[in-house]
């Protein structure tokens, strides 16, 4: 848009309730649109400028800092109930720029750009010299640990065969020598006990996602694996208003068409074996 001489922005306190409202809408937008990793929560509002918008409304130009929580992105737990990832677990932060339109009392996200980055190794060492740092997700040990854990889980499962969706976090622990991994899975149309070729299994139309935590411990002459998975109820996903005014396809997955349950279930159910 051409620059309009004399157009000035309104200065607002970063902790002003109106700014916070806009920032919370921005964080909700992140959690509703990101399809990998963990939910984020608001940590600090860095800057805010409020521009008049023609013919009506105002645009909040925001810079915000977020922190990673321990809730997987497809976990239906409200982010307010999610625990913030602590420094000793190697916290991850997000730096975001947003433009949020306020019109008729309603906030709508017009623009979003976020970068996330883990805390520095030095910072983690300061608070916990012995704590393991985040490991690359393609590390050989990480990939092996996930494969072993998922196989163990499927072997003990008397239901669907679960396929790997993503590895979301990993740490190499020196003592005892072990690999800690967190990964997401999804149910397929195969029965776990009858699978011969996992490549032929297809994800269910009505997706059921799960989130697993596993530790693979190296031992003399072998290894031990412990894995626990939390399965999430299939969640109906509502279309989100988009910047161009159109209704987007569902955020998480267009194949999810399950109507909302009459009696909403608990946020998550722990099912499946602990191996």
């Amino acid at each position: 848009a051409p620059h309009i001489p004399g157009l000035v922005y309104r200065e607002l306190d970063c902790d002003d309730p109106e700014t916070e409202q806009a920032a919370l809408v921005a964080v909700d937008y992140i959690n509703n649109h990101v399809l990998q990793g963990y939910k984020h929560t608001l940590n600090q509002i860095d800057k805010v400028k409020v521009w008049p918008r023609r013919p009506m409304g105002e645009v909040f130009e925001l810079e915000i800092d977020t922190l990673e929580t321990t809730c997987y992105i497809r976990d239906p737990t409200p982010v307010a109930n999610c625990t913030v990832r602590q420094l000793m677990e190697h916290a991850v932060e997000g730096d975001c720029d947003f433009q949020v339109l306020k019109q008729d009392g309603q906030f709508t996200v017009l623009f979003a750009k976020c970068d996330s980055s883990p805390d520095s190794a030095e910072d983690v060492r300061k608070v916990c010299p012995q704590c393991p740092l985040l490991a690359p997700l393609n590390d050989t040990k990480v990939v092996h640990a996930v494969e072993v854990a998922l196989t163990a889980f499927n072997t003990q499962s008397n239901g669907s065969y679960f396929q790997l969706v993503e590895v979301s976090r990993a740490q190499l622990v020196p003592l005892p020598p072990s690999t800690y991994v967190e990964f997401a899975v999804a149910a397929t149309d195969c029965v776990a006990a009858e699978v011969t070729d996992p490549a032929k299994c297809n994800l269910l139309a009505e997706k059921q996602y799960g989130f697993c935590k596993a530790t693979l411990t190296e031992k003399v002459g072998g290894e031990d694996v412990a894995v626990t998975c939390t399965m999430f109820q299939t969640q109906p996903v509502l279309p989100q208003p988009q910047p161009d005014g159109t209704e987007a396809s569902p955020v998480a997955d267009s194949a999810v068409t399950a109507p909302p349950p009459a009696d909403p279930p608990a946020a998550a159910l722990v099912v499946g074996p602990v191996v």
Binding site: E11, L12, D13, C14, D15, T19, E20, T41, L42, N43, Q44, I45, D46, K47, V48, D65, L67, V84, L87, A91, E93, D119, D123
Partner: peptide, 27 residues
């Protein structure tokens, strides 16, 4: 009469509108 010399009134704390408060911890 002894008059108390006028003491300049200290200005109130300067409010920095931004950045806002840290809700958890700063990385």
């Amino acid at each position: 009469n002894v008059a108390q010399p006028s003491v300049p009134v200290a200005a109130g704390p300067v409010v920095r509108p931004c950045p806002g408060r840290i809700r958890h911890f700063k990385i």
